[in-house]
Structures are given as structure tokens and as C-alpha cells.
């Protein structure tokens, strides 16, 4: 092997991003998922500005109208344009999904990497705690958390969800860190005089990046789902504010008379989950060496 060849091989071997990109380029479903998700996100953020209706603007003359040229997805019983409400609801649902996932990511990575790196009794105790909380139904904890705090605040809803969803992330990061801790390059860094903090940040976490990214992508849809379940049960986002869970809840009550009020929000919601799941699956194939066959 010439020097040039070796350099080239090293370059290709190290680039996680490029490797993943090559995989994704071959995965048609992940691409479709990506395009769908970007489209829906853009629609949710730009759409309401372009529409001539606003979130709570009422067209009371007719009450609930079926889809028409003026109201593409019809209106709800208060005469509010459903299209705008779905898009603004999407902002909330997607926004809560990302924000809560971010919180779970930060807590989970810090907790898991410390547990895995320190090891011994501390690790045992920390993971035992995770196991204990893990044994409970997530929704129950989140329901209690949402009533504990002022339930009308969206920030608290995603804090509550984030505070529960970090457990799996902590388990994954801890497993990775444990495996890495014993490897030679960590010893080398210690000999070199690197602090524990530096070893964690510069040497261990970059090597856990693959699983972290994959799990984060798969966590977003489950968080969106959880937010919707809460809103569906009347514990999450409160009307007149809109979220997909709220809209599906309102629609489900009147499905026999105004079916479009359920079908359109449900469609947006399901397509988003579908897209995110395919992106997550694609990334898992691309980034997780264990899954590649």
C-alpha cells in the first residue's frame, strides 16, 4: 500500500458522516421520509403566513363547513379554518418533539456517560435508579408531572416529557462508554495527562455519536406521539391553542358528523411519524455497524 493509498483509506474509514450519506443515498424510503418531513415542517412554519385566515379567526355564519375552495380542509364547529389550525398545531407538535428530545438527549448523555465512565458502585446505583423508573408506565409519570405544574404551559409539557424520555438514552450511552473505557486510546489519553472531562468530551462521546444520533431520530416521533396522547387526554396543550393531539381529540368526538375534522389532522400526524421513522431506520442502517448485514 502506498502512502497515498493509506491516507485515502484512513480518510474514508474515519468519516462517519460520509459513510452514512452513502448509505442514505441508497435507501429510497429514508429519502422519501426526509423529503416528506422537510415539506411538512416548511408548510407548518411558512403556511400560516401565506393563508388569509388566522388561528382563531371565526367564520361563524356557516359553522362547521366541509372542505371547499375557501377552506381547503374545511372548518371546525366554531368556523375556524382547519388548514391553518393543522399547520400551527404542527408547529407545536414538531416543536415539542424536538425540544423534549433535546432535553432528553442532554440529560441522557450526561447521565449515561458519567455512569459508564465512573463505573463500580456509583454506576450500579445510577443504573439501578434508571431501572426503577423504567419499570413505570411513562404516560403515568408524565400525567402526574403535567398536573404538578401549571398544565397550560407548553414549556412544562416538554420538560415533563424530556424528563421521562432520557432513560433509554442514558442506557445506550452508558453501554457504549463502558465498552470504550477499557480501550487503549483512553489509556493513552490518560497517560498524556488529559482530564476526565476532556477524555469524556473529546474521546468517548465522539465515539458514541452513531448510536446517539440514531436513537435521537427515533425518539422524536415517540415524543410527538406522547405529546399527542397527553393532548388527546386533555392534559397537554390546551384549546384554543392548537396541536395535532388537540385537533385529533376534537375531531374524534365529532367523527360521525364532520369526519374531515379527524381525517386531516390524523393524516398530517401519521405522515410525519411515518417520515421520521423511516429516517430513523435509514440512519440506523447507515450508522450502526451491528445492523449492517
Amino acid at each position: 500500500m502506498t502512502k497515498q493509498e493509506r491516507e485515502k483509506a484512513a480518510l474514508e474509514a474515519t468519516s462517519l458522516g460520509r459513510d452514512a450519506w452513502e448509505h442514505i443515498k441508497r435507501n429510497r424510503m429514508a429519502q422519501i421520509g426526509g423529503v416528506l418531513f422537510i415539506t411538512i415542517t416548511l408548510m407548518c412554519w411558512i403556511g400560516p403566513w401565506l393563508s388569509s385566515y388566522s388561528l382563531n379567526q371565526q367564520d361563524l355564519a356557516y359553522g362547521a363547513q366541509s372542505p371547499s375552495a375557501q377552506h381547503w380542509f374545511g372548518t371546525d364547529d366554531l368556523g375556524r379554518d382547519l388548514f391553518v389550525r393543522i399547520l400551527i398545531g404542527g408547529r407545536i407538535s414538531i416543536g415539542v418533539g424536538f425540544a423534549a428530545t433535546f432535553i432528553a438527549l442532554v440529560i441522557g448523555v450526561i447521565y449515561g456517560s458519567i455512569a459508564g465512565y465512573v463505573g463500580g458502585k456509583v454506576e450500579d446505583l445510577m443504573m439501578r435508579f434508571v431501572d426503577a423508573v423504567y419499570a413505570l408506565p411513562f404516560t403515568m409519570i408524565v400525567i402526574i408531572l403535567t398536573v404538578t405544574f401549571d398544565k397550560k404551559s407548553i414549556i412544562l409539557i416538554f420538560m415533563a416529557i424530556g424528563a421521562v424520555e432520557w432513560l433509554t438514552m442514558a442506557r445506550i450511552v452508558r453501554g457504549q462508554t463502558r465498552a470504550l473505557r477499557k480501550l487503549n486510546f483512553i489509556d493513552a489519553a490518560k497517560v498524556y495527562g488529559a482530564s476526565h472531562f476532556r477524555i469524556l468530551i473529546r474521546h468517548i462521546l465522539p465515539n458514541c455519536l452513531g448510536p446517539i444520533i440514531v436513537f435521537t431520530t427515533l425518539m422524536i416521533p415517540s415524543v410527538i406521539l406522547l405529546e399527542s396522547v397527553l393532548s388527546f387526554l386533555g392534559l397537554g396543550v390546551q384549546p384554543p391553542m392548537s396541536s395535532w393531539g388537540v385537533l385529533i381529540n376534537e375531531g374524534a368526538k365529532k367523527i360521525d358528523i364532520y369526519p374531515w375534522q379527524l381525517i386531516f389532522p390524523a393524516l398530517f400526524f401519521s405522515i410525519t411519524l411515518f417520515a421520521l421513522n423511516f429516517i430513523g431506520d435509514g440512519l440506523r442502517d447507515a450508522l450502526d455497524p451491528k445492523e449492517t448485514k
Partner: peptide, 22 residues
């Protein structure tokens, strides 16, 4: 199966209700 994962019960339930019951 993937479609099934994206259809939570509060979407499936009312649709089944509408179609099979009503």
C-alpha cells in the same frame, strides 16, 4: 408494519368506530 407503528390508537380507534360501528 411501519405504517402500523405510525397509526396510534387515538387515530385508529375513531376511524374503526366510524366505519364498523356507524
Amino acid at each position: 408494519a411501519t405504517i402500523g407503528i405510525c397509526l396510534p390508537s387515538f387515530v385508529v380507534g375513531p376511524i374503526l368506530l366510524l366505519f364498523f360501528s356507524l
